[in-house]
Simulated assay, not measured.
Amino acid sequence: MGVDHLKNVVFKENPLARYLESKCKLCRREGEKLFLKGEKCFTDKCAIDRRNYPPGQHGQKKSRISDYGVQLREKQKIRRIYGIFEKQFRIIYKNADRQRGVTGDNLLQQLESRLDNVVYLMGFGSSRAESRQIIRHNSILVNGSRVNIPSYIVEPGDTIAVDQKSSDQLRIKASLQAADNRGYPSWIEVDIKGMKGTFKNKPDRSDLPSTINESLVVELYSK
């Protein structure tokens, strides 16, 4: 592939394991926006703004959840935010646990450093799912070399760009404009006209949403 530090684990996805129902149900199940539907999540058409309770006939009934249930729900929520399968997520967690530092922080930094997530944050895709599709269609370059692996880990200083052949795609242009209107995280820098960006550094925990409680995932997997 021409990229020197392509040292990632390549995950093979099982198409039969994909979630085929409405993605809005996942947000309602977790009780918050997971931003799975692109621009729809930023409008008043978002399902959770209309029906902020779990889907199903018993969704509005309140039930007590055990400590294990709370930990499981948090793990599921994080998996769904980043679009990670269970097997992938366990491997990422094990890698984070082996690293120096706080396991939970390492976990989030690995998830945030995935190419599909970086492409989404830079605005080349309206959602992480669309970003994965764009990457698989050979539309993304990392440091000038084509990379079509969504799980590829981006390193600080890496430049991510849209391939020139894909620069006329309307969906990429629309996503870029919408992302620019919202603003970008402090750890990335984007050149809209050049359709490229730089991953300046890995985010600190304080830079990431406080609605994520990664310590619950650590507790769950430490049992």
Rank of each mutant, 00 (worst) to 15 (best):
Arg29His: 14
Glu30Thr: 15
Glu30Pro: 13
Glu32Phe: 09
Lys33Arg: 12
Leu34Gln: 15
Phe35Ala: 14
Leu36Gly: 06
Gly38Phe: 09
Gly38Tyr: 08
Glu39Thr: 09
Glu39Asp: 14
Lys40Ser: 10
Phe42Met: 10
Phe42Ser: 12
Thr43Pro: 10
Thr43Trp: 11
Cys46Thr: 08
Ala47Ser: 14
Ile48Gln: 13
Ile48Asn: 12
Asp49Tyr: 10
Asp49Ile: 13
Arg50Pro: 04
Pro55Ile: 12
Gly56Trp: 14
Gln57Asp: 04
Gln57Leu: 11
Ser63Asp: 09
Arg64Asp: 07
Gln71Ser: 05
Leu72Thr: 03
Leu72Gly: 07
Lys77Glu: 03
Ile78His: 04
Arg80His: 01
Ile81Met: 00
Gly83Asp: 00
Phe85Leu: 12
Glu86Ile: 07
Phe89Gln: 02
Tyr93Asn: 01
Lys94Pro: 00
Ala96Met: 03
Asp97Met: 11
Gln99Tyr: 01
Arg100Met: 05
Gly101Ile: 00
Gly104Trp: 00
Asp105Val: 14
Asn106Thr: 09
Leu107Thr: 03
Leu107Gly: 04
Gln109Phe: 07
Gln109Val: 13
Gln110Glu: 09
Leu111Asn: 06
Leu111Met: 02
Glu112Arg: 04
Glu112Ala: 12
Ser113His: 06
Asp116Leu: 03
Asn117Leu: 12
Asn117Gly: 11
Tyr120Met: 11
Leu121Glu: 12
Met122Gln: 04
Arg132Gln: 09
Ile134Cys: 15
